[in-house]
Design a protein around this nucleic acid. Structure first.
Lengths: 340, 340
DNA sequence: TACCCTTCAGACAACGTTGTCATCGCCGGT
DNA sequence: ACCGGCGATGACAACGTTGTCTGAAGGGTA
């Protein structure tokens, strides 16, 4: 019963016209008599013909699709970004291939090159790898790439970043303004661009306030549950403990909250990157919010701008602002240590 | 500077061999002398040639890609499902087109047909529309579809569901077991399959316990923030108010928590579908969890099974279990109404 | 020497479309 | 009655690859 898919040839045969005439009707090119048009349309309807876009686009040398390489499709940052990219792509009649690099440079590369092999019209990449030289031939061959959240390494390409350093600085300034002098920083591996930038913001804020940078109050390890637990205990448990924490990203913040839930004497806390329910927790969690959707939109718009002609101009970098959202946890005064 | 992409023809010319020989080398078909192979490989490297998969797959009549139609790529349910689908697809050397229907039947249809026009090998759909008859020609033509979370309408196709009714029943049974007799149900529009099934479970549980079904304790409207606020006030504010709430889905649960945050006398609460931070809230939120990743895996595996031959068998429906996760909110006794 | 078989290689058509060009008939203008 | 032009149509090549077939060269066997 599984009939093969009808092609234009089949339609042409049934309608008793030439192949090209069918093509003309399908594309509404005009210069086909109403009579013929109707016969062709009848044949199309009868056979349930649908044009094969793949073949069409092969002929035209495009694919009307773009490749989106994320760290993990499933995390909220990535998925908000994906949705925004999708919406812009739709406006340009383009479909989106989405894939996860799992924060693994090799996988990022494989995925990206798989997209290129499909001849996607362009790429949007949240990079994980340590180099992007492998993209040079692709970009040279005419597949533009836009990097998001982190800059590319070893090559020059359009990039959308947020003001990580400024955001971190704003977060720590905020804690300092509320009287804190011992502020912990729970970050991520320094190989991650954003982690380093946020650390820099943290240090800049401390320095501007004349406060010392104390390594014993920081953690720069990948945020596994285990590592976070230890870090929190270390930072809050020492002889001169932190009274406030700045969490370098979403995952860290959530893990920290999990750890803190089992403790008395909550420190003040500001997280980098907003998350659902931050306002429902008691106290509400103060965050420096970035806007993943805006990042996605911006990147997609830059990409489509490249695709419609602007292929020569120098690589641009856009740096989006962050926004401090006070909700309570960042405005708590220094806890008067009961029993310490 | 933007050189066009080299093709096999270019490689062949440079290596001084025939086109087909290049094809053979690229595909590792053997029966090419080591000498020739080397020359071809040198030419490939020199030109930075990469095979055009689109053209290859056109020839082979496949696309090694599948289409995934979601309600909204950005929501946690969809994105967890996407990730699982992606992982299975990768095992089959397939890429994933992802798109959002925005809970709009027309958009779902457009998106799905756009995928079909690209000749995706198969479809995975979280349906939103009121009919899927439009898919009949596609399925007949050999593009299998698997439906997830909700069954298709008007057609017969593979489907992955969760035991919505059983899950809802488990939730309400749980509240009843903790002494509640007045239990509110905050659901969603009855046009949504899962909403209706969960309502049925709610009613079945009440009935089994000999409790009356009281419409004034339920809300079956789309869960906008406004609607939820009113519903909560109505259900908890009447003369004989609910002492416990069962929330029909994730979005409802979160909105309800937002509303409840501003009230004294928290009711007991169980939500359908788990969410990040449910364990960090105080009290922890008891939920009936479904497993979106498992749903995605299952659907993708069914799809690839169809794609590797099993195209005739009758449509199968898999119903995955749900799991009650007690965290506190569902185990609270009836609040002794202070000041009521 | 004649034969066959194997190994390597290329010519050609095909996948399903679109761009280019040629053809045909018909109209109006002279 | 002739010609230019236009509307309608189809033949053909092309996009970049792969499947099929055919052929040439080389080596072994009788």
């Amino acid at each position: 019963m599984m009939s093969a898919r009808p092609t234009m040839k089949d339609v042409a045969a049934l309608a008793g016209v030439g192949l090209k005439t069918v093509s003309r009707v399908v594309n509404g090119e005009g210069s086909v008599s109403p009579d013929t048009t109707e016969r062709v349309n009848a044949a199309i309807a009868k056979l349930g013909f649908r044009r094969n876009e793949g073949a069409r686009l092969l002929r035209q040398g495009r694919t009307a699709s773009i490749g989106l390489v994320l760290e993990d499709v499933a995390d909220p940052f990535s998925s908000a970004l994906t949705r925004a990219v999708e919406d812009i792509a739709r406006q340009h009649d383009s479909l989106v291939f989405a894939g996860s690099s799992a924060e693994d440079g090799v996988r990022e590369r494989e995925l990206t090159l798989a997209f290129c092999a499909r001849r996607v019209d362009g790429l949007i990449i949240v990079p994980a790898g340590a180099t992007h030289r492998y993209l040079v031939p692709e970009i040279t061959a005419g597949t533009p790439a836009v990097f998001v959240d982190r800059p590319p390494v070893d090559i020059d390409a359009d990039t959308v970043l947020v003001d990580n350093e400024g955001g971190a600085r704003m977060a720590v300034d905020h804690l300092i303004a509320h009287g804190h002098r011992r502020i912990g920083f729970l970050g991520d591996a320094p190989t991650i661009f954003t982690a380093t930038a946020r650390l820099a913001g943290y240090r800049a804020s401390l320095e501007a306030a004349g406060l010392p940078y104390d390594e014993s109050l920081t953690s720069l390890a990948p945020p596994t549950a285990e590592a976070i637990r230890h870090a929190v205990e270390r930072v809050l448990g020492g002889p001169d403990p932190a009274t406030a924490l700045f969490c370098g990203n979403n995952r860290v913040t959530v893990e920290v909250l999990r750890v803190l839930a089992g403790r008395p004497n909550q420190p003040a806390l500001v997280g980098f990157d907003d998350f659902e329910l931050a306002d429902v927790l008691r106290p509400g969690i103060t965050v420096v919010a970035q806007d993943p959707a805006e990042m996605g939109r911006t990147a997609a718009e830059m990409l489509f701008a490249r695709l419609s002609g602007d292929r020569q101009g120098r690589a641009k970098t856009v740096r989006l602002p962050t926004r401090l959202i006070p909700r309570g946890s960042g405005e708590m005064p220094i806890a008067t240590g009961i029993g310490t």
